[in-house]
Amino acid sequence: MKKLMTILASCCIATSVLASEAELETVKVGNDVQTLARGADALMTNCHSCHSLKYIKYSDLVAMGVDKSKVDAWRGDQPMSAALLAQMPEDAAIQSFGKAPPDLSLMAKARDGGVNYVYSYLVGYYVSPEGVTGNHYYPPTKMPDILGISTAAGETQRSEIHNTARDIVSFMSWAADPHAQERIRLGYYVIAYLIVLTTLLYLVKKRVWSKLK
């Protein structure tokens, strides 16, 4: 028993050590059409030149609620059914940054910390005293500080950048799981149905078993 207590105690210590290592900023993603459309806009402006979203088609954006004229402007002469491939060819990106920029379709789910990680990363740039730009959350990053948080002057600009980052992350969260809202809506119905069904089954069970007494 004593041995067990020691083990459990050391487990608790280990957990607290791990928890202090990565302190991500938390973000509450929006899933209303306005936020998602703003996020799509910001992503197309800031990220899409280098990053692809290969599992998202232009038609998906229209179906989600982005203005069709905007989508038409983004896709140019590509068909509606085309995937959102990066504007920059991969070879050119590797030449400029040293590695291919990752696809963003699943990014909101593909890192420990999920959306919080992506959000923290986007607003995690800083300029060191030596004048070098770095990132707190992913130091080896090759991506420039695209939203300009490290050089932002004043609180208004900083909070604007935070809002943009939140919009982008919200959009990426939608892109990673476009059926999430439908899933949750359906979930309430399914569970409500199951609760009614289980209650009825319980009553039948009670009735059947009452014959035994």
Partner: peptide, 19 residues
């Protein structure tokens, strides 16, 4: 009937995870 009632409880928990 007892198994079916248990199944109902199990499905509620399972659905929380799935949905």
């Amino acid at each position: 009937i007892k198994d079916l009632y248990g199944l109902g409880l199990f499905l509620i928990l399972y659905s929380v995870f799935v949905f």
